[in-house]
């Protein structure tokens, strides 16, 4: 019984998180503007990080947690740098 419930929940979580990552990827592709793409990237990395946690839960391995931590840090730095670039880097005036 436990096995059935746990496998169902893990499958559901993996499927929904993959779908969410696909949605974020779609937003990155269609834009329409640079800020939309960065927002999509922000969502994508949080979703993939959560997916790593779920996979780690299924396989019972600590290494996925560390990979998730790295994704979180890299994603934060990337999106902040991109947002900052939008604010000052692009000179339209």
């Amino acid at each position: 019984m436990s096995e059935l419930i746990m496998n169902a929940a893990l499958f559901y979580a993996q499927a929904t998180l993959s779908l969410a990552a696909a949605c974020a990827g779609y937003r990155i592709l269609i834009g329409p503007r640079a800020q939309d793409r960065i927002l999509g990237l922000d969502t994508l990395y949080v979703t993939v990080m959560l997916l790593f946690l779920v996979v780690g839960l299924r396989l019972g391995s600590i290494f996925f947690f560390e990979a998730a931590m790295v994704i979180a840090v890299m994603g934060f730095v990337a999106t902040v740098a991109l947002a900052k670039f939008l604010y000052r880097g692009e000179v339209i005036e």
């Binding site: 929940a9 559901y12 929904t16 779908l19 969410a20 974020a24 927002l39 999509g40 969502t43």
Partner: peptide
């Protein structure tokens, strides 16, 4: 698990 993944999916659907 179900609560967390459902909310994440809803957020991503909203994004689209």
């Amino acid at each position: 698990l179900v609560i967390g993944s459902t909310l994440t999916l809803l957020g991503a659907i909203g994004l689209v």
